[in-house]
């Protein structure tokens, strides 16, 4: 509980820092433009080619939007880990964190906060609601629960990616770019209708990084495309499991740092 309080204190001070700059509202606008323009390719493609079998643009967008919103949540509330490899290890600020008598995890997670990142969450969430309305989904308590669980699970999963990256960064920060496959590139995978998605992609994003578990299965459960609620509710445990796995790597990295100091 104390950790949580401290985390929000950290967020607060970083938010205040951000607001010191006059251009912060432009940053909000910037992220909003990113969010709106990001799926422009797929929308225009549907516009030209029409639906693919039963896969309409709304269906694809719903899955996409759930993934993006989760990613946005992680980017907003675990920004410190996202920045960690590039902003903290090199600068030696991590030493400072080790010198404070509280959880290293909380300190790193709260070490950066950019208010404008929330616009990805906002944009994504609007898209989810719009798609659900278009698809005549029912806003029953169960469906809302599945959706919320999906977003929380997604938050954990993407935080897991950041944490894992940070853990690996203790060993090398050269060539960490491939992690992009599991962050910004990962939700691009949702552009493939799931029936046509190559097996390898499907397995990678189900059994390793559970991106589809937190997006496709909940969406399918909510809209009744054939996957049951049991699978839809797997989002939260799957996200937690991935985060747990990442934390293991992170701990390993911290220990390595303490023994080499590099």
């Amino acid at each position: 509980m104390k950790s949580l309080k401290l985390y929000f204190k950290y967020i607060r001070i970083n938010m205040l820092s951000g607001l010191q700059y006059k251009g912060w509202w432009l940053m909000i606008l910037q992220t909003l433009i990113v969010v709106v323009t990001d799926p422009i390719g797929i929308i225009l493609l549907f516009y030209r080619f029409g639906s693919v079998g039963e896969w309409s643009v709304e269906k694809i967008l719903l899955i996409y939007a759930i993934a993006v919103t989760s990613f946005g949540l992680a980017e907003t509330f675990s920004r410190g880990f996202d920045y960690f490899p590039w902003r903290m290890i090199r600068s030696g600020d991590f030493d400072r964190i080790l010198l404070r008598p509280c959880s290293v995890f909380v300190q790193v997670a709260g070490s950066f906060f950019h208010i404008h990142r929330i616009s990805r969450v906002f944009g994504g969430f609007c898209a989810i609601i719009w798609c659900m309305l278009k698809l005549d989904a029912v806003f029953s308590p169960l469906n809302v629960l599945v959706l919320i669980m999906a977003l929380i699970g997604g938050y954990f999963a993407y935080t897991g990616v950041f944490v894992m990256t940070s853990g690996i960064a203790f060993f090398t920060i050269e060539g960490l770019d491939w992690i992009y496959i599991f962050t910004n590139a990962s939700y691009q995978v949702t552009r493939c209708p799931i029936d046509y998605m190559p097996k390898i992609l499907r397995n990678l994003f189900t059994f390793f990084m559970p991106m589809l578990v937190i997006s496709y299965y909940p969406a399918s459960a909510i809209c009744g495309w054939g996957e049951g609620y049991a699978k839809g509710l797997l989002a939260l445990p799957a996200g937690l499991a991935f985060l747990g796995f990442s934390l293991y790597i992170w701990r390993f990295g911290v220990r390595h740092y303490q023994s080499t100091g590099s």
Binding site: L6, I13, S17, G18, G92, D93, R96, R100, P101, C102
Partner: peptide, 23 residues
């Protein structure tokens, strides 16, 4: 050579946070 204070906020805010950090 390095600061432990938060660069962009008044000193007081940094002290406040340190109070919480060190409980």
């Amino acid at each position: 050579q390095r600061s432990q204070l938060w660069w962009d906020v008044p000193v007081n805010d940094s002290f406040d946070l340190l109070k919480d950090i060190y409980d």
